[in-house]
Design a protein around this nucleic acid. Structure first.
Length: 673
RNA sequence: GCCAAGGUAGCUCAGCCGGUAGAGCAGCGGUUUCGUAAACCGCCGGUCGGGGGUUCGAGUCCCCCCCUUGGCUCCA
C-alpha cells in the first residue's frame, strides 16, 4: 500500500478518524512497551469516540501511570517515526511472537490468521500485527487523551485471564478533542445519580441493600404523575388494571419453567408453614392464572391485563447502576391474551400506545426486531406468523427498525425499543414480546367459534420499561428540569415580605384546587434567595408576590432558566398552567381520536364498553367525539370555550412525523419479560 | 462475580512521614422584611463504611467483609 509522506499538519484532516484512532492505539502500545518491556499485547481496536488496547502486565496501571504513558506517547509522536507496513511469513511471525512470549498474539495467529503472509506495522522499535491501514507517521497523532483503565477478560471470556484495558480518545484537532471532553462533562452533569441526589428524588441505602430504590417525596410525586397517566391511558385503551402478590409457591415457578431457565436471576425460596415461596421475578404467571380463573370464549378476546408490577431479580453486584440497573423494579407490565388472528392488530395497538407514550414524554427512540434464535420452542410456522406480525406492525406505523437475527427470546420474537437520551445514548426501554411457551406450559386456552379448545397467543409488553429506569432516563433526558406536567413542584410562590404571605397561601389553595402542585416559600429569606433555591431545584415557575401584586390580584411570573415574565392576573396564570397539564393534553388527544384498540373484550358483550363498530362515538373510525358531556369535562379541564374545543376536535388527527437520529447505542437490553 | 479506584459531618471535599478531625454549604438560634439567582452573627453537628490486627498511639499501616464508581462478564 503506497503512501506518501506528507507533513502532518496538512495530511491530518484527510485521514479517517477511525484510522487515526487505530494508530493512536498502536502509539499507546508502543509507549506501554517502552515503560513495561514485559507487557504482553492483546488487541487494540477502535470504538465509538476512541480506542483501547488490552495489556497483560504484572502490575496494575494506576492513574499516574496513564499520565506517564500519555506523556511518553507525546514524545514518540514528536519523534515522528514513520509507520511502515511489512509482510511477514506467518511462521516467522509466529516464532518471533513465541520467543517474545506474546501468547495472545500467538493465539490470534493460530486461531484466526490462516494466511501465509501476515501484515505487520512497524514504527521505530515497535511492531504490531495489524491489517491496517495506519497514518504515515507517529507525528500525525496529535490530539488524544487517555481516559480510563479497566479490567477486561481475554476474548471477553470470564474464564480466561483478566487483562488491563486502557481507554483513550483521539481527534483531528484540538477543538474536536476539547469539544468531546466537554461533552463528557455535560454527560456527567446530566447523570441521574447526581441529579437524583441534588433534587432529592431517590436513594439507595446501604443498610437496606444494593439495587433497591427508595423514591423520596419529589421522586414519588413524579412517579405518581407517570403512573396516573399510565393507568388512565391503559384503561382508555381497553386494558384492565390488575394487582398481583409479590410471592408465589415454588411449584408455580417450576410449572412456568422459570426455575429451569431463569433460576440464576431469582432469589432463594423462603419457607412458610412448610411451603416454599419465591419472590417474583416476573408478573406473567399471575396474569395467566387470573386469565385461567374462568373458561374464556373467543368473544372475550383480546383480554389485556395491565399492572405496575414490582419484581425482584438477582443482578450481579458489578452491574448495578443507579436507577438504570437495579434488583427490584416496577415494570409497567401487561399481558395480552388473544387469538392468532387478533395478534397483528394487537401488536399495532401496542406500538401505537408505545409511540403515544414516547411522544408524551418527549423521547426519541429506535426499534430492534429480534427473530428466532437457535434454541427455541414453538412451531416454525407460528414463529413466522408472529415475526411477520411484529414486522408488519412496525412498517404500518412507519417505524424504522433494525433486525437482530436470532436475537429473540427462546419463547418468541420481540421488538425492543431503545430510548435515546439527550446525549444520544441508548437505553433499553419498552419491549414487546410474543410468547409461545407459557400458553403451552400453563395450558392457556379459549373456546373458538366451533366450540373447540384453542391455545391463546400471549404478548408480554411494557410501554415505558420500568418505573425506575424510566425515571432515570427522564432525569437525564430533561437534565432534571422536568416539563411542567411532570414537575414534582410546578411553581413556587415567593412572597417578598411577610405582608404577602397570607396572600401567597390563598393563591396556593387555588392552585391546588385546580390540580396543580405549588408550594409557598414562607421562609424568612430574601426574595433572591428564594428564587435561587427554586431555580436550583429546577421548578418550572416562580410566582413572586409583593405589594403591587397583592393590591391587583396578580402574580409576577418567572420561568425557570428564562427569568422574569412580568406581572399577570392570577386567572391568566391559572389558565396558562392548566393548559400545560397532561390531563388537558390527554383530553385533547382523546377528543380527537380514540385508540385503534377500542374493543374491550367482555365489556363489549355486557354493553358497557365502546361499541366495536359504528355507534354514536364511531370510535374505531377515529372520528371526532362530540358528546356534550365530554365537551363539558374537557372545557372544565382545559379552560377552553366549547367553540374552540369543537373546532379543535374537528381537525383530522395526524401523528407528527418523527425524526430518527442515528446514534450510538448503549443498550442494557432485554431484561423485561 | 472479575480487575481497578474509592467510602471522613445531611451534601461537596481537605486531612503530610502514624501523634488523637477541619472547611464551605445545609440544619438550628437570633437579628434583618428585602422587587427577580445566595443578608448578617452565633451554635450544633463525626462509631473517619463495618469488624479484626500491628503499635505507647491508627482516619492514616495490615487482613477480612459491606457499599459506591469505571470497565469486563451477564442481561428470559
Amino acid at each position: 500500500m503506497a503512501r506518501e509522506m506528507t507533513s502532518a499538519s496538512s495530511a491530518v484532516q484527510e485521514v479517517p478518524l477511525d484510522l487515526l484512532r487505530h494508530s493512536c492505539a498502536h502509539l499507546m502500545a508502543q509507549a506501554v512497551r517502552r515503560l513495561w518491556p514485559d507487557a504482553k499485547l492483546a488487541i487494540g481496536p477502535t470504538i465509538d469516540n476512541g480506542f483501547y488496547y488490552d495489556f497483560d502486565v504484572p502490575v496494575a496501571f494506576s492513574s499516574e501511570d496513564l499520565v506517564k504513558i500519555e506523556a511518553l506517547m507525546r514524545d514518540i509522536a514528536r519523534e515522528d517515526l514513520p509507520i511502515v507496513q511489512k509482510h511477514w511469513p506467518r511462521q516467522e511471525l509466529l516464532s518471533t511472537y513465541r520467543n517474545l512470549g506474546e501468547v495472545y498474539k500467538v493465539e490470534i495467529i493460530e486461531e484466526d490468521v490462516p494466511d501465509p503472509e501476515v501484515s505487520v506495522y512497524h514504527q521505530g522499535e515497535f511492531f504490531d500485527m495489524c491489517r491496517g491501514p495506519h497514518v504515515a507517521s507517529t507525528g500525525q497523532i496529535q490530539h488524544f487523551k487517555l481516559t480510563s483503565v479497566a479490567g477486561a477478560y481475554w476474548r471477553g471470556d470470564e474464564h480466561r485471564p483478566m487483562l488491563q484495558r486502557i481507554y483513550g480518545t483521539a481527534w483531528h484537532t484540538r477543538e474536536e478533542l476539547e469539544a468531546y471532553l466537554r461533552q463528557l462533562e455535560e454527560a456527567r452533569a446530566r447523570d441521574h445519580r447526581r441529579l437524583g441526589q441534588e433534587l432529592d428524588l431517590y436513594s439507595v441505602q446501604e443498610d437496606i441493600g444494593p439495587g433497591l430504590i427508595h423514591f423520596h417525596p419529589m421522586g414519588g410525586r413524579i412517579r405518581h404523575v407517570i403512573e396516573s397517566f399510565w393507568r388512565e391511558t391503559h384503561l382508555r385503551r381497553g386494558y384492565e388494571l390488575v394487582y398481583s402478590p409479590h410471592i408465589a409457591k415454588t411449584d408455580l415457578w417450576q410449572r412456568t419453567g422459570h426455575l429451569e431457565f431463569y433460576a440464576e436471576n431469582m432469589y432463594a425460596p423462603m419457607e412458610v408453614e412448610g411451603q416454599k415461596y419465591i419472590i417474583k421475578p416476573m408478573n406473567c404467571p399471575f396474569h395467566i392464572l387470573m386469565y385461567k380463573s374462568h373458561l374464556r370464549s373467543y368473544r372475550d378476546l383480546p383480554m389485556r391485563y395491565a399492572e405496575l408490577g414490582t419484581v425482584y431479580r438477582y443482578e450481579r453486584s458489578g452491574v448495578l447502576h443507579g436507577l438504570l440497573r437495579v434488583r427490584g423494579f416496577t415494570q409497567d407490565d401487561a399481558h395480552i391474551f388473544c387469538t392468532p388472528g387478533q395478534l397483528p392488530g394487537e401488536i399495532v395497538g401496542v406500538i401505537d400506545l408505545m409511540q403515544y407514550m414516547m411522544k408524551s414524554f418527549g423521547f426519541t427512540y429506535r426499534c430492534v426486531l429480534s427473530t428466532r434464535p437457535e434454541k427455541s420452542v414453538g412451531e416454525p410456522a407460528v414463529w413466522e406468523l408472529a415475526t411477520a406480525a411484529l414486522r408488519d406492525a412496525l412498517e404500518a406505523k412507519g417505524l424504522e427498525y433494525t433486525v437482530d437475527e436470532g436475537g429473540g427470546a427462546f419463547y418468541g420474537p420481540k421488538i425492543d425499543i431503545i430510548l435515546l437520551d439527550a446525549l444520544g445514548r441508548g437505553w433499553q426501554g419498552p419491549t414487546i414480546q410474543v410468547d409461545f411457551n407459557l400458553p403451552e406450559r400453563m395450558d392457556v386456552n379459549y373456546i373458538d367459534e366451533s366450540g373447540e379448545k384453542r391455545r391463546v397467543v400471549m404478548v408480554h409488553r411494557t410501554v415505558l420499561g420500568s418505573m425506575e429506569r424510566f425515571l432515570g432516563n427522564l432525569v437525564e433526558h430533561y437534565k432534571g428540569a422536568f416539563p411542567f406536567w411532570l414537575a414534582p413542584v410546578q411553581a413556587v410562590i415567593v412572597p417578598i415580605t411577610d405582608e404577602q404571605l397570607d396572600y401567597g397561601r390563598r393563591l396556593a389553595e387555588r392552585f391546588w384546587d385546580a390540580g396543580l402542585r405549588v408550594e409557598v416559600d414562607g421562609r424568612r429569606e430574601k426574595m433572591n434567595a428564594k428564587l435561587r433555591d427554586a431555580e436550583t431545584r429546577k421548578v418550572p415557575y416562580m410566582l413572586v408576590v409583593g405589594k403591587r401584586e397583592l393590591a391587583e390580584e396578580k402574580v409576577a411570573l418567572r420561568k425557570h432558566g428564562e427569568g422574569d415574565l412580568g406581572p399577570m392576573p392570577v386567572d391568566a396564570v391559572l389558565a396558562r398552567f392548566k393548559e400545560r397539564t397532561r390531563r388537558a393534553r390527554w383530553l385533547k388527544d382523546f377528543g380527537r381520536r380514540l385508540p385503534s384498540q377500542g374493543g374491550r373484550g367482555y365489556l363489549d358483550r355486557l354493553g358497557a364498553g365502546i361499541p366495536a363498530r359504528g355507534g354514536r362515538f364511531r370510535a374505531r373510525a377515529g372520528l371526532r367525539v362530540r358528546s356534550k358531556v365530554r365537551l363539558r369535562v374537557r372545557q372544565e379541564c382545559t379552560g377552553l370555550r366549547p367553540a374552540t374545543l369543537i373546532r379543535r376536535s374537528s381537525k383530522p388527527h395526524t401523528w407528527p412525523s418523527r425524526t430518527e437520529s442515528e446514534s450510538t447505542s448503549r443498550s442494557r437490553n432485554g431484561r423485561f419479560g
